[in-house]
Amino acid sequence: MPPRQCPACDAAPSERADHYADCPLKDVPLAQVAGLTLEQAEAKAARWRA
């Protein structure tokens, strides 16, 4: 099964604990956005920042 990855920086929680340094979604924990589409992840990031 393909690993779940961050849709922006492709970090996978199975490989590392956090996003890569320049990821635009780095404010949100990696496990929260891994496996989502970019649109879903952006919506989640907006909720998280709010």
Binding site: P3, Q5, A11
Partner: peptide, 11 residues
């Protein structure tokens, strides 16, 4: 948001 090329993990 400027996005880059996608990659598998692990590579």
């Amino acid at each position: 948001m400027r996005l880059s090329w996608r990659k598998p993990a692990p590579l």
